[in-house]
Design a binder for these strands. Sequence first.
DNA 1: TAAATTAGCGTACACTTGTACGCTAAGTCT
DNA 2: AGACTTAGCGTACAAGTGTACGCTAATTTA
Lengths: 202, 202
Amino acid sequence: MAGARALQKEKTRQAIIDAALMHLSADHSFASLSLREVAREAGIAPTSFYRHFNDMEELGLTLVDESGLTLRELMRKARQRIEKNGSVINTSVETFMEFVERNPNIFRLLLRERSGTSVKFREAVAREVNHFKDELTEYLMAESDYSQEFAYTLAEGLVTLVFNAGAEALDLNPIEREKLKERTILQLRFITFGAAGVKEKA
Amino acid sequence: MAGARALQKEKTRQAIIDAALMHLSADHSFASLSLREVAREAGIAPTSFYRHFNDMEELGLTLVDESGLTLRELMRKARQRIEKNGSVINTSVETFMEFVERNPNIFRLLLRERSGTSVKFREAVAREVNHFKDELTEYLMAESDYSQEFAYTLAEGLVTLVFNAGAEALDLNPIEREKLKERTILQLRFITFGAAGVKEKA
DNA sequence: TAAATTAGCGTACACTTGTACGCTAAGTCT
DNA sequence: AGACTTAGCGTACAAGTGTACGCTAATTTA
C-alpha cells in the first residue's frame, strides 16, 4: 500500500495550512486567527485540529517554515536571472516584488506579525529573514572585498529596505506599487554606492 | 467651578489610555487587546468604557495621535541638539533610540501593528510616519540642492532604516542594541553619501 | 432649591473561544 | 480473520468577549 491512511492525513494537514494562509489579510493577522476559524475553513471539526498540531503556535511555526521554503526558491530563481541578465539590484527587486504580488499572505506572515505572536514564532520569522541577510553578505563579500562585518551591515540595510518595500506594497494599487519599486531601486543604489565610497576612504 | 465633573472624566479617560498603552508588549498587541482588559486595568466597569470611546478602534486612533505628539516633540529636541552639536546622523539616531528605550510601547504601537488592525488605524499610523518623511525631505532640500522627488526617496530610505532599527531594538539587550545602533548609523552614512554621489553623476 | 444631566455600575444575554472525553468507522498489522 | 490503531466527530463546559438596559449618586444648570 501507499498508505491510504497517511495520505489522507497529509491531505487534511495541507487543508489546515491552506485555510490558515487563506485567512490572513490586512485586518486579520495570524495572531488574531482562532483555531476554530481554521478548522471551519479546512472543513474539519475543531477538535480534529489536534490530530495534526498541538497548538496554533505549532501551526504558525509550520507556516513560517513553509514560507521560508518558498522564499528560498525565489532567491534561487533571482540568482539565475542575475547570471543571465546582469543588473543585480533591478533583478532582485523585480523578483521580490513579483513574489509579493503572487504570495501576499506568506509575506504578511513574515513581515507583519512583529507583535502579538509567541516568542518562538517571532524567532522563527527572524531566522528566515536572517537567511536572506547571511546569503547576501556572502554574495557581497565574494563580489567586492568587504570585510565580513562591513558586508553584513550593508546586507542588513539592503534587506531592510527591500522587505519593508514589500510589506508596504501589499496595500498599494499597481501604479503606486510601481513608483514604490522605483524609489526602492534608487535607495538600493544609494546604499551600495555609498558603501563602496565609505569603504574607499577608510 | 473649574468643572469638577469634566475634570474627573478627563482623569479616567487618561486612565483608560494609560491602561491600554501599559498592556502593550511583544506578545500582546493592541489588536489582541480587549475592551474588558483595558477597563479592568483602568479600574472601571467594562460598560463605563463607552462613556469615553465608542470603540476599541476609537481608542486606538487616540493612542496613535497621542504617540504622534510625543514623537514630534522628540523631533524638535533632536533638531535643537543638532544645531548645537553638528553631527546630524549620530544625533538623530541617538535621540531616536533614547526615545524607543523610554517609550517602548508607543513604539510598538507605531511600528509593529502592521496588520490585525482596522484600516483607519493603519492609515493613522502611516500618517504619523509620513510626518517624519516629509519633515526630513524638507530638511534635505534645504541642506543640499536635491529635487523634491530625489530628496523624498532619500528621506524615505533613511526613515525606513531608523524606524526598523527602532522596532528591532525593542527586544534586544543593551549590548546588542548598541551594536545595532552602530550598524544603523553606518547604513545611514552609506545612503546619504550614496545619494550625494548618485546625484552628482546625473 | 428643584430639575436635569451624566459618569460609572451591575446585571444580563448571546456569542466565541480552547479543549477534555468518549465514540465510530476505516485502514493497518499479525 | 481478528486485533489494533487512529483521523475525525459530537457533545459538553468553563471562560472570555462585546454590548444593551436601567439604576444611582453626584454634579451642573436654571
